[in-house]
């Protein structure tokens, strides 16, 4: 892997900024430099796109809740009401 200077940024800097880019946390100037690099560097573009879609998949996972038994919740509630009344 060559650390190439494209669009005024090195590949290694793009790698370091990738999460901030995906989260839209970069300032406008850095965003533009990262994008110029991505447009001119197939390696970083290829990795960044797939890294970004991994993050999107992870975010979609929030729609599939961890199974908590319904009776665990009602057990918990009745204990809380008992303990809560004691305080």
């Amino acid at each position: 892997m060559q650390d190439r200077l494209i669009g005024g940024v090195r590949c290694s800097e793009v790698l370091a900024h990738l999460s901030d880019y995906v989260d839209a946390d970069l300032d406008a100037a850095t965003t533009e430099r990262v994008e110029n690099h991505l447009l001119g560097c197939p390696n970083c573009e290829h990795f960044g796109k797939n890294f970004g879609s991994m993050v999107a998949s992870l975010r979609n996972e929030s729609n599939t809740p961890e199974a908590i038994q319904a009776d665990a919740i009602s057990r918990m509630l009745s204990q809380i009401y008992q303990l809560g009344a004691d305080s």
Binding site: M1, F47, K49, N50, F51, M54
Partner: peptide, 15 residues
């Protein structure tokens, strides 16, 4: 993670 490897699509497919 596959940066610079030529096969980063494996992470998106697996994810």
């Amino acid at each position: 993670a596959g940066w610079g490897s030529g096969d980063p699509e494996t992470i998106a497919i697996a994810a």
